Computed example of a mutant assay.
Amino acid sequence: MGVHKFSPMLAQSVETAAEEKEIPIIVKYRTGIARETIRARKIPEGGQAGHVYRRIPARALTMRAGDIASFAADDDIEQVWRDMPVHICLDVSVPLLEAPRVWADSGRGAGIKVAIVDTGIDTEHPDFEGRIRATRDFSGKGSVADGHGHGTHVASTVAGSGAASDGKYVGVAPEALLYVAKVLKDDGGGMMSDVMAGIEWAADEGAQVINLSLGAPGPGDGNDALSSLCDAAVEEGIVICAAAGNSGPGASTVGPPGVARQVITIGAADKSDNIAGFSSRGPTADGRTKPDIVFPGVDIVAARAAGQNRRSRPNRRSRQHPRLQVACSRFYTP
C-alpha cells in the first residue's frame, strides 16, 4: 500500500473520510515519466482525471478515499498530495516606490510579458487597451471575465495605463504586456491544481514574470505541489512573485505558494513603512525566513472590473507585491 507516500494533509483527510468520499489529489511520478505515459495510466473506476503538468511529472485526479492507497502503491508514484483550496490573498504606492524615477531611467515596462494568475480581468477596461495579449480560463467559467474584481485590481496595479482616471492612477509598468489566467472563481476561491495549470500556461506563453496574489493557509514547508511547480518554473528563468498572505500578525502564517524556495515572497507595509498587521509572517515550517521583502499593500487604489466603479480602494488583500513583480521585470530586455 502507498500510504507512506501521502502528504500529511492527505493522510489526515483519508483517515477521517468515508471510503466512498471523493478526494481531489495531485500525484507526483518519478522523474523521467513522460506526460503521455502519465496521461495514459489507468485510474480507479469512478475516478476523474485532471491536468497533467509538464514542469513536474504530476497529474491532478479525484478518486474515492478508499482507492488512493492502492493506487499510490505503483512504484512509479513518488508522492501524493491533497489538492488544496486557495483564495485571493496606487496613487500613493507608485510615488512611494519612486516609479517615476524608474520610468525615466528604464522605461515604463514596454514589451515585458507579465502574467496575472488570479480571478480574471475586465478585458474592456480602458487601462488595458491593446495590451492583453492572451487569456485562458481554468476556473470552469468559460471566460476570463472577472466577476470578483481582484484580478482586475492586481492587473492595473501592475500595468494600468491610467486611462480611466485621466492619468491619476497609473500602474508601475503601464506599457507591459498582459497574459491573464483565470484560476479562481468569482467568489475568490479555487483549487491548487488549477493555479498550477495557470502557471504552466503562462510559462508556455512566454511570460517573464508571473504574479500570484493568492495562497493557501500556512504554515508550509515548500514541499507542496504548488510550491514545487513554482520552483521548477523559476529554474527556467521565470520570476514568480507570491503574496505572503493576510493571516498575520502571528508567526508561521505564510502558506503556499509563498513558502516556495525560489519565489520572491512579499509582505505588506502601510504608507509609513510599517508592516501591516494583517500581513503573514514567517518562519516557514522548515525554519526559513519568509517573506523576502515588504511593499506597500494598504489602501491601494486601482481598477475595478465591469459593473463597478472604475476605481476602488480595498484593504487587507495581498495586492502589495505586483510592484515588486514589475521591478523584477526590469532585468529583462525585450
Rank of each mutant, 00 (worst) to 15 (best):
G66K: 09
T62P: 04
M84A: 13
V27C: 05
I33R: 12
M63F: 08
R55L: 14
I77D: 14
F71M: 03
G46I: 01
G50H: 05
V27Q: 03
E45G: 06
G50W: 08
E19R: 13
I26G: 03
A65T: 03
G46D: 05
T37W: 00
P44W: 04
H51G: 00
M84R: 14
L61F: 04
G50C: 13
P44K: 04
I88G: 15
C89G: 12
Q48C: 02
I33V: 15
A58L: 09
M63H: 13
V86Q: 12
S93Y: 01
A73K: 07
A73C: 03
A58V: 12
H51T: 00
E45P: 01
P85N: 07
W81Y: 15
K42E: 15
Y29G: 13
V52K: 02
I23F: 08
E98L: 14
E19Q: 11
A40S: 14
A73L: 02
R35T: 06
D76V: 07
K21C: 04
G47Y: 03
T31N: 11
P95Q: 12
P95S: 10
I23N: 09
A58Q: 13
T62Y: 05
D74L: 02
L61D: 10
T37E: 09
A34S: 15
P44A: 04
I77M: 11
P44V: 03
G32W: 09
P95L: 12
T37C: 00
L96Q: 15
R39E: 09
G50N: 10
G50L: 04
Q79K: 14
I56E: 09
I33A: 05
I23E: 07
P44I: 01
S70T: 00
R30D: 09
I43C: 02
V52N: 10
E36C: 01
D75Y: 02
D83F: 00
P44S: 05
D76L: 15
E45S: 11
W81H: 15
M63Y: 13
M84F: 00
S70Q: 03
I38T: 08
G47F: 01
S93F: 01
R59G: 10
V86F: 05
I25F: 00
D67H: 11
D74G: 08
I38A: 08
E19C: 01
V92A: 05
V52M: 03
E20M: 01
I33M: 14
K28Y: 14
Y29V: 06
E20A: 07
I68Y: 08
I56S: 11
K21S: 11
V52S: 09
F71D: 06
R30M: 05
R64E: 05
G46M: 08
P95M: 12
I77F: 10
M84P: 00
E45M: 08
Q79G: 01
E98A: 14
D83I: 02
D67T: 05
T37Y: 00
W81P: 13
V94Q: 14
D76P: 08
E78D: 15
E20S: 06
I56Q: 10
P44T: 03
E98I: 06
A72K: 05
T31I: 07
V92Y: 02
Y53L: 13
A69R: 06
A73W: 07
P24E: 08
